[in-house]
């Protein structure tokens, strides 16, 4: 569980570093796609204690197909929603740049991933 949290916390910063690659570079496309479609949502699922993932990690989801399904749905949908809201806020404020958008998303993802968890509240 700890590796998942730290991996998520780092994912946005890796994606931010990938913006230094050439436009359209396959590694940059792969990093960004994975980050924007999965990471903010997975961090939210973990940080907001939306499924058993936050307390028991992937092992806790294995015996419960519904929890696994819920984790996958919320991961994708919340990632897209959060990415959209960040992009929209920056566009509306006239402050949109790629680096700024990814930076904000990386920060949000890190905060959600590293939110402290109290025992027994899952």
């Amino acid at each position: 569980m700890r590796s998942l949290r730290w991996g998520l916390a780092a994912s946005g910063w890796v994606a931010l570093a990938a913006t230094a690659l050439q436009a359209g570079h396959p590694l940059r496309v792969a990093c960004m796609t994975v980050f924007l479609v999965l990471c903010p949502g997975l961090a939210a699922v973990s940080g907001l204690r939306l499924t058993a993932l936050s307390t028991g990690g992937w092992a806790a989801l294995r015996p419960d197909p519904y929890a696994l399904l819920k984790t996958v749905v919320l991961t994708v949908v919340l990632s897209l929603a959060l990415s959209m809201l960040v992009a929209e806020a920056l566009f509306l404020g006239g402050a949109f740049t790629t680096e700024r958008a990814v930076l904000v998303l990386a920060a949000v993802t890190s905060v959600l991933a590293l939110l402290p968890r109290k025992a027994g509240r899952g």
Partner: peptide, 18 residues
């Protein structure tokens, strides 16, 4: 209601796709 379009713009800018 620009959200969907701005999400795609973010994706294009971030990946560098045309």
């Amino acid at each position: 209601w620009p959200g969907f379009f701005e999400l795609n713009a973010l994706f294009l800018r971030a990946t560098g796709m045309d």
